[in-house]
Design a protein around this nucleic acid. Structure first.
Length: 280
DNA sequence: CTACCATCCTGGTTGC
DNA sequence: TGCAACCAGGATGGTA
């Protein structure tokens, strides 16, 4: 589910609601996610106050008053939802944080591809195994055509694989790579090294435009994803190509022409959607 | 390097 | 209605 826009929407919801809140109790109902959770999580967080909540790549960080940082990843099916304490506990609610005012933050993840970890301070966070190698933030001024050219130079990978590679650019996933390449007019089959400066110059704003629009729409809700208050995102209604095989893309009448509209094929084991008429 | 594959896990959808 | 196959927003480690 969650790519950068969904994680960002979650972070904004949590930050607005929980900054300054004090943890009363933590229930660790199931610790065996993709990485095992630290068993001392409840003891470490009890009585601590939330100082800051932010995002790096697709990771969520919750910094507490004593400097400790909780690191979370939502994997494919994870969600963080605020609820009242009397709400029924769901099957896949793995961590439940109860605050002093009675509200609860629940980490629910059916597929258990997510992760939760705890580190001593922000320095330890920066050198965390999961974060050490993540690439540039696409919505920062780090993302420039020149930077992309340097990252891609000499590589023979396809642009689709490169944009999914979190070590290069952090936060894009299968949906937003497809959408960004569409708006940039670049075929997902192109080799990174073969892209011209002008094409990279179109790719940067395409990536940022898609991510910003998706954040504005509160992310995409396909099946699992919901906001921290349970509302759905609606960017899925604005997809140009993702999950639209056989339909017209958002820019032409390709569906009724011989190209047959948006095409789907499998690349690296994952679905790729593109419009052959608009992306070359 | 790179492409490709399987793996972790559950649940929803599709097709017979 | 049952059941099996297939599919899914991610990340990683192995293979050739």
């Amino acid at each position: 589910m969650p790519e950068l826009p969904e994680v960002e929407t979650t972070v904004r919801g949590l930050a607005a609601a929980l900054t300054g809140a004090t943890v009363q109790r933590v229930q660790l109902r199931r610790a065996d996610l993709r990485l095992p959770m630290p068993k001392n999580l409840p003891q470490c967080l009890q009585g601590k106050t939330v100082r800051q909540i932010s995002r790096r790549a697709k990771y969520i960080t919750i910094t507490f008053g004593d400097g400790r940082v909780m690191l979370l990843h939502l994997g494919m099916s994870g969600r963080l939802v605020l609820s009242k304490a009397d709400k029924k506990i769901e099957k896949h609610d793995h961590v439940i944080v109860t605050f002093a005012d009675g509200r609860q933050l629940r980490f629910n993840d059916p597929r258990r591809f997510g992760m939760v970890d705890l580190v001593k301070n922000s320095q330890a966070l920066a050198s965390h195994k999961q974060l050490k190698h993540v690439g540039i933030e696409p919505l920062s001024d780090q993302l420039t055509a020149a930077r992309l050219a340097a990252l891609f130079k000499g590589r023979r990978t396809t642009i689709k694989a490169a944009l999914l590679d979190q070590r290069l650019i952090a936060g894009l996933g299968n949906i937003y790579v497809a959408e960004a390449l569409f708006w940039a007019g670049i075929s997902p089959k192109r080799r990174t090294g073969g892209l011209k400066a002008g094409e990279l110059g179109k790719l940067v704003p395409a990536i940022q435009k898609v991510l910003r629009a998706a954040i504005k729409a509160g992310g995409s809700s396909l099946r699992d994803y919901v906001h921290t208050d349970g509302r759905l995102g609606y960017f899925q209604n604005k997809f140009a190509v993702y999950d639209r095989a056989g339909q017209a893309c958002r820019r032409c009448d390709c569906a009724i022409e011989k190209t047959g509209g948006v095409q789907r094929f499998v690349q690296g084991g994952r679905s790729t959607f593109w419009c052959p008429r608009r992306q070359t």
